[in-house]
């Protein structure tokens, strides 16, 4: 069993952005985006669709709000709040645990040392693509969820007149929440990825510590997500 006690500065990773010019690093980045975003988008779309239908049904059918008001609320709620938060929660449940256990296992099996012997920088090759990949994937998943929710909302509110609602979309959706979505979701993804990497790197290189790393990644990720969302709310 191997142990690598050399500290890896996770935040220092962003000084290595230039390494993205290396094809080997880009490949890890694309794989991370694929596993985090592509394999989750159907679930995210389904959750978004259900969410949009539920919100509009509640507001329009049960609380008697007008169609436009219900859609306006749906637009600002999903794009600015619910989609980034829920997509990040799903991502943390699926991918943070996977990243943490993968890194903890690699460390335990001496793969970090093997990479160092090949003069391959751990932060550049392993951490940078994971941080960036999860942050970008979180943006994509949030956009997917918001668009699915809006589609469901339009279908529930307008029924067969959905095409009319589409051409007047600017009445229900302002630019502010649309621009807020990528910024918020990127920050959520980045923090979740940082905590997942840190969990994978911080535990002892022992088989019994791998589940601990996984659990830490999910718990810390979820906790930080809500704190960060609160900070965004205060900032606005």
């Amino acid at each position: 069993m191997q142990n690598t006690d050399v500290a890896i500065p996770v935040w220092g990773v962003f000084r290595r952005l230039g390494a993205l010019r290396l094809p080997a690093v880009r490949r890890v980045l694309f794989k991370q985006i694929y596993f985090t975003a592509n394999e989750a988008y159907l679930l995210i779309a389904l959750i978004g669709f259900a969410l949009g239908a539920i919100v509009v049904t509640l507001l329009h059918v049960q609380y008697g709000q007008s169609r436009d008001t219900a859609l306006r609320l749906l637009g600002s709620l999903t794009f600015a709040e619910l989609a980034p938060l829920l997509a990040a929660l799903v991502m943390i449940a699926r991918s943070s645990s996977a990243v943490a256990s993968e890194l903890a296992n690699m460390r335990m099996h001496g793969e970090f040392r093997a990479l160092r012997l090949m003069n391959i920088d751990i932060a550049t090759y392993l951490l940078l693509p994971r941080l960036l990949g999860m942050a970008l994937a979180c943006m994509l998943l949030s956009a997917c969820m918001a668009l699915s929710a809006l589609t469901a909302g339009l279908l529930v509110a307008a029924g067969s007149h959905v095409s009319y609602q589409l051409v007047t979309l600017e009445r229900v959706l302002s630019w502010q929440p649309v621009l807020l979505l990528p910024a918020k979701s990127f920050s959520f993804g980045l923090v979740a990825a940082f905590l997942a990497c840190r969990s994978g790197l911080s535990v002892a290189a022992l088989p019994t510590e791998v589940p601990r790393a996984t659990s830490m990644a999910v718990m810390h990720g979820m906790g930080s997500l809500f704190i960060l969302d609160l900070l965004w709310a205060l900032l606005r």
């Binding site: 191997q2 993968e102 296992n105 690699m106 001496g110 793969e111 093997a114 990479l115």
Partner: peptide, 12 residues
């Protein structure tokens, strides 16, 4: 290049 009795490859 390093070559060791316990050869480690990258698992993923």
């Amino acid at each position: 290049a390093a070559v060791e009795g316990h050869a480690v490859l990258i698992s993923n």
